[in-house]
Simulated assay, not measured.
Amino acid sequence: MKYKSVFDIIGPVMIGPSSSHTAGAARIGRAARTLFGKEPVWAEIHLYGSFAKTYRGHGTDVAIVGGLLDFDTDDKRIGKSLEIAKEKGMQIRFHEDEAATEHPNTARIRIGDGKEEQELVGISIGGGKAEITELNGFELRLSGNHPAVLVMHNDRFGAIASVTQILAKYEINIGRMEVSRKDIGKEALMVIEVDQNVDDHILKELEDAAHILQIAKIVD
């Protein structure tokens, strides 16, 4: 698995007329791509609130797809991302959803490659910044303001301890941690914010720990 930042694409130069509707949207798309770990074959993109009302005029559609293609916010190819995705054979569908959401700039992105699927909810909070609020049915808070490790694991005794012990061994301090699960004994998700970036060899050790299914990191 290739580790890289979900939130490594914000910068002073942004493509598009609106930081919220373009740069923030691109960050949501790229977060989905990074957490999926590979380029998706298809994407179902549901847009809510002002995203749904203005996404064509403000470039939200090309920005999200540009993120799915792993483009930076200042990448000039974002403007042609729909054409590039079509050339690659990526199937994209947009849905203007009227459901009420807590934030006006909300996108729900389902992606897959025929073998695996992922669903992510992100919000664009202004200034080109984005937060991920849901991943595969798990509620979470990811802003990219601090280094973090996402750990998908089986809900078993000792799973959390195995992760925290490894981090402690390498003197990595935990600033915030939240754990959620879908049901007793099913899949669970740890979101661990730490004080420094976690090296890839530590992530490999975490991935090999008991009951761990998948690891992703967010660098500062």
Rank of each mutant, 00 (worst) to 15 (best):
I64M: 08
G89P: 01
Q214C: 14
E139A: 08
T22K: 00
F71N: 01
A159F: 10
D8P: 10
E102A: 06
K76N: 07
L69M: 12
D113H: 07
L47S: 04
M14F: 09
S20N: 11
I9E: 05
N136R: 08
V13Y: 06
D61S: 03
V6N: 12
E207A: 15
P147Q: 03
A130N: 09
A168M: 05
S124V: 11
G126S: 02
I184Y: 13
Y170A: 03
M14Q: 15
E98R: 15
G49N: 07
D155P: 01
D74V: 10
A85I: 15
H146Q: 15
G128K: 03
L189K: 06
D8L: 06
L47T: 04
R56T: 11
A43Y: 04
P104I: 04
V6D: 03
F36E: 01
L68G: 01
G114T: 04
A148E: 05
K53H: 13
E87F: 08
I192P: 05
L68Q: 00
I218Y: 00
A210M: 14
R141T: 07
A32I: 09
T106A: 12
T106R: 03
P147N: 04
F36H: 06
N173P: 02
E187T: 15
I192R: 00
E117V: 12
E207K: 15
S143V: 05
T54H: 14
R141K: 08
H146L: 13
S18K: 04
A85F: 01
V163R: 02
F138Q: 03
G79I: 13
R93V: 07
N154A: 10
A188Y: 04
G67W: 10
E178Y: 10
T34G: 15
H153W: 09
S18Y: 07
S143I: 06
V191G: 02
G59K: 02
S162M: 02
S81G: 11
H58Q: 10
V198G: 09
V121A: 00
T22W: 07
E96L: 11
D208H: 10
P12W: 05
V13A: 10
F51M: 09
I125R: 08
K129P: 14
L82V: 15
M14D: 14
R156D: 01
H201Y: 06
I215V: 12
Y48Q: 03
T34L: 06
P40S: 09
I132P: 00
D220T: 15
G16S: 10
S20W: 09
K86G: 06
V121G: 00
I160W: 09
I10V: 15
E117L: 11
M177H: 05
R33L: 12
L47R: 08
A25D: 12
A25F: 09
G128C: 09
H21K: 01
V62Y: 14
G126M: 06
T60I: 07
